[in-house]
Design a protein around this nucleic acid. Sequence first.
DNA 1: CCTACCGATCGGTAGG
DNA 2: CCTACCGATCGGTAGG
Lengths: 216, 216
Amino acid sequence: MSRTAGVKKPARWADAVPAREAQFEIKRRALVREAARAFGRRGFHNTSLEEVAEALGVTKPALYRYVRTKHEILYEAKTIAFDAGAKARDMAAAATADPLERLRLYIIHYIDLVTSELGSYAVLAEPVTSLPPEYANPIRARMREADRALREMVQAAMDAGAMPPGDPKLAVAFFMGAINHIARWYTPDGPLTGRQIGEIFADFILNGLRGPRAGS
Amino acid sequence: MSRTAGVKKPARWADAVPAREAQFEIKRRALVREAARAFGRRGFHNTSLEEVAEALGVTKPALYRYVRTKHEILYEAKTIAFDAGAKARDMAAAATADPLERLRLYIIHYIDLVTSELGSYAVLAEPVTSLPPEYANPIRARMREADRALREMVQAAMDAGAMPPGDPKLAVAFFMGAINHIARWYTPDGPLTGRQIGEIFADFILNGLRGPRAGS
DNA sequence: CCTACCGATCGGTAGG
DNA sequence: CCTACCGATCGGTAGG
């Protein structure tokens, strides 16, 4: 026991390194989140890194310890938002096999995430053309991936007879337009929580897609 | 008769002046439309006037015969989009007094306009903060005006018992997010016309707002 | 993490 | 409507 302990480096060192790395990651995350909010509100090119730095209480060059380019920040911010969408889909898929319920849970969970991030998911509105190809292409791939997964969810509900047959692509364009818009108007000061908005939107969307003959 | 004619300036002149003004207006409109499309696709600050000029087959300084600043172009483009919304509301109001049908007609007409303008209404996604106060403030006023008018339409439908009572603000945020998103994905090459999209979206929206017990 | 600075882009103008 | 150009902003780097 004491021999094993002797072989290890002192605990302070062993912990200090991860701690420093963790600090770095935390700061990097804060930077991306803050920038994402600003990009979402004022647009990517209309937001200078000087402004982002000021909001974080540092100077612009300091940001370059954590990111290499402004493009990388936008890329990261969009990636985080797509990760949230994927997480919401996974949670919904794990919770139930019922296609309609799955769609409902996805909507609620995704809106919950969107509203908890104080507008940083509004970056999704930023055109992918603001990025050079090496960043734009992976983002486009993730857009297609999300689109495909959602269309499959809608198609499954149609196949199960839970909603009338139709074009899943149009249905997804419909409700994702509404959902992604939330990040641009939601504020925690409002009367509704993200969860409440999610439930109301889920009703709007599912009732809309099911049509007037929905009897349940 | 010949005396009156003698007093008038020759017809060629009398017609030429309006013709020149009309030309000017046509060119100005083409400039704003082209810029609006580019702003909507790539963002305001990510679109240089050099690019807009090139798309129109002229050089950048030539644009300044028609507009004073880049901000003015964005302001104009947004104004045109708001005018379209107001026109759609007026057409709907003139066509029927039934609140639900009015809302349906508004949706169909507005989407029809949106899809006929080849993406130039996507400028609505451009943050109003891209503009200096003297332009941003009137735009904000028009946003509030449109919002209020739509909320009143929804409220009227609720009051008439055509849809269950609820928060009209949330309902409007819901469907305007979906509708304004159309300008960002619609292309005339697709299988559906703007009219068809409008009818499907109107069904989605009205069924969504009416809820599962809608029996008609 | 800061001060100082470079280089490129781009809105807008002069002058014709 | 064009050529030529100015001035400001801003992403990114040097050097500490």
